[in-house]
Nucleic acid binder design. Structure first.
Lengths: 193, 193
DNA sequence: CGTAGAATTCAACACATGATGAATGCGATT
DNA sequence: AATCGCATTCATCATGTGTTGAATTCTACG
């Protein structure tokens, strides 16, 4: 009789399994609609085990949402680029973030949660504004740099929503190079002209 | 002793009060995070009364989310416009929708709910794709009309998110004319060139 | 071997949710 | 005045949530 309780025989890393399942669940449904019990169900584990490993639901989410730390420095590199192909570089950078499986998951989760969780929305806005658009605006010696950066942000966020969240065709299946081809001039105009 | 139960004295239109409170609640929090009980609390009414008037929560939401029916015909008019200032017209039309208090509420609610509710997301995609971008694409005699319409949609959706949902400055407080000034060329390029 | 501690589940709590059916009060019609 | 129907609340149900504390089983170390 397989015992219903107690420690499991082999050395399978259940903790990591839970993390993985939680990651996909959060990225597919957002924070609110993802229940600890659903995560536990996916990992074939008791809900209490999730709590046991990661504390509260908030802490679990925070553990998962660690975006790459070098993001800021990458943006700085972007800003230092010559202004002629700045638009293209920005688009490529943004697309790289979303095409990468790991970061895409975090981004999806954050975006999905930001709408309903005011706290998440605030931190998202702060992050985008301070860590991404701020540095970019700082290097624009043109009138209204802040506005220009925000406009660029609006096109990029629109791209993310349509291509990765709503998945509207044909943009959702378009190859990366074509996306760059279409969006680069727009970004370039916002960030120059 | 003011009786706790039974009909209320004066002729105040409670039904409409509930509708109004539900509208603001849905637009501020989206479908999921808005509870019938919260709506009832706002209207100072028993939760059962909400159910009594509007049936299920879904039906209440559907009752509120009736976007103006003439939308389709307006888009048709847009499509018929000369191609030279099509970009500007599209931007103006979109902004008019969001600057109008009544439609903004519906749009906010739909957007906020679309992220977490798969059903809402599907119908939003269908609506945008079929009723808005489809007709627009139909009148473009250029290569890849559908892609062009979707690109235009991405910039408009990005604008809505940044300006009306995330409320990121300075775009959030920018006057309408300036928004038109900045976005019209982008839209024009997607829809021509 | 024995035992400390980790992994895991069980059972339960306190709370919130959407929904329903019965009860009660008031207004309007006869 | 009597009555019918609407407006409104009460009490309650079934379900789902995050979280906690105790119990059980296994592993690892002495």
């Amino acid at each position: 009789m397989s015992p219903r309780t107690g420690r499991r025989p082999a050395g399978s890393d259940t903790r990591q399994l839970i993390l993985k399942k939680a990651g996909t669940a959060f990225s597919e449904q957002g924070y609110d609609k993802t229940s600890l019990r659903a995560i536990a169900r996916l990992a074939k584990v008791d809900p209490a085990l999730v709590t046991h490993y990661f504390g509260t639901k908030d802490q679990l989410f925070a553990t998962l949402m660690r975006l790459p730390d070098n993001l800021a420095s990458q943006v700085a590199a972007l800003a230092a680029a010559p202004s002629a192909d700045r638009g293209e570089r920005v688009v490529r950078f943004f697309l790289a973030l979303w095409e990468n499986e790991a970061t895409r998951q975090s981004l999806l989760a954050v975006f999905r949660s930001a709408v309903s969780q005011p706290q998440a929305a605030d931190s998202l806005r702060a992050f985008i504004s301070d860590a991404l658009l701020g540095p970019l605006a700082a290097t624009l010696d043109l009138p209204e740099p802040r506005l220009r950066a925000t406009l660029a942000g609006s096109q990029l966020i629109g791209l993310a929503i349509v291509r990765y969240i709503i998945r509207m065709e044909p943009l959702a299946s378009l190859d990366v190079e074509s996306v760059v081809f279409w969006l680069a001039p727009t970004l370039q105009r916002y960030l120059s002209a």
